[in-house]
Simulated assay, not measured.
Amino acid sequence: MANDLTIYHGSQQLVETPQFGVGKPYNDYGQGFYCTESPELAKEWACPVKNDGYCNCYELHLDDLQMMRLTHGEFNILSWLAILLTHRRFDISSPVAQGARDYILSHFLPDTSGVDVMIGYRADDSYFSFAEDFVSNTISLRDLNMSMQLGTLGEQIVLLSKRSFGHIEFTGYEVADYREYYYKRFERDQKARADYARRKKTLQQLTEDIFILDIIREGMDNDDPRLRLQLSL
């Protein structure tokens, strides 16, 4: 149907009936059911260890569901980062990182009340390290935004509300062979790291580059045109 979305969940288990309230609360967007529109990515996520996994397939019926897409419209990379800071465990031991966390949460955290389904970047190890570098004032906003395109780690679709679990229908599965997908997962993350390392070595700071300390000192918020310019470079 036109308002249905085919999504995939990679797991070491066959998941015919996803359960609300199951999962780790410190995942990227909190407790929820994490999926992707890419069966290849789901097969990689299904093989974090050297065991075969399952690429579970579903139809998500979107009618009457409230969706938030963090990579489009009024939201930007700082909206994604604020949600990540809410749930994930960052290295924020330095005063700069502590101040950055507090400012990002107070100025860029979207209102997620009533959201049934969240769509945004997946913070695999490499992406998570990029976010930590920005919070620590090591890289600029422009570099963070561009770094999120490295390694093609893709977006994830997360069912958050109890209501959303009533809109998902299991349609089948494929076995993910770890002999292929365990190594593909590793190679994708390593590619993102390698691309990032090469980029850091050749960074040419632009005069208009903005770092988190600049954002704090200038009191910038989500509607600031300077941030929009950075994110469009």
Rank of each mutant, 00 (worst) to 15 (best):
T71P: 06
R188P: 01
I168E: 01
Q12A: 09
Y121E: 10
R185W: 02
Q204S: 14
D209N: 04
H72N: 12
L85A: 10
R69N: 12
F90C: 01
D209H: 03
A131T: 10
T202H: 15
L206R: 15
N137D: 15
I210Q: 03
Y8L: 07
E174T: 11
G99Q: 11
R198T: 12
D223S: 14
I212D: 05
L81Y: 05
K162L: 00
N3C: 03
M220A: 04
D177R: 13
Q190F: 08
H107G: 03
G166R: 14
Y54N: 03
N27I: 01
Y58G: 02
A2K: 12
S129K: 09
Q190L: 12
Q205L: 13
G219E: 09
R122C: 06
R179W: 04
A197R: 14
R199M: 15
S147W: 10
Y103N: 08
Q66R: 13
S79C: 11
S161F: 05
L231N: 08
E74W: 00
H107Y: 03
G73D: 12
L153Y: 10
L62S: 06
L160C: 09
I119M: 08
N56L: 07
F130Q: 07
D177C: 08
S147N: 12
D195Y: 09
K24C: 00
I83H: 07
A194C: 00
N3I: 13
L84K: 01
Y121A: 06
S11P: 02
L85G: 09
Q13K: 15
L70C: 09
F75Q: 12
S147M: 05
Q12N: 11
T36I: 07
L160T: 05
R228D: 06
S11H: 01
S79P: 11
L105Q: 06
D223T: 14
G32R: 02
S126Q: 13
Y178F: 15
L81F: 07
L70M: 11
D224W: 02
Q19T: 13
I104F: 08
Q156P: 02
L5I: 07
P25F: 01
G30L: 00
F33I: 01
I216F: 04
E187D: 15
L62V: 00
S161E: 05
G21K: 07
S38I: 10
T171Q: 10
L231F: 06
V22D: 02
G10W: 07
L159H: 08
S232K: 09
A123I: 00
Y26F: 10
Q98E: 03
I168C: 02
F186P: 02
R226S: 06
R226D: 05
I157H: 13
Q205I: 11
D195G: 07
F90A: 06
E187L: 15
K50T: 10
C57E: 15
I77M: 09
R69Y: 10
A97I: 03
R88W: 00
E187V: 13
F75V: 02
Y8N: 09
V115E: 02
M68H: 02
V115R: 00
L227Y: 04
F130A: 07
L78K: 03
A192M: 08
S94L: 01
R179I: 12
H61P: 08
I119A: 01
T202G: 13
D224A: 08
I139H: 10
M220T: 06
L5D: 09
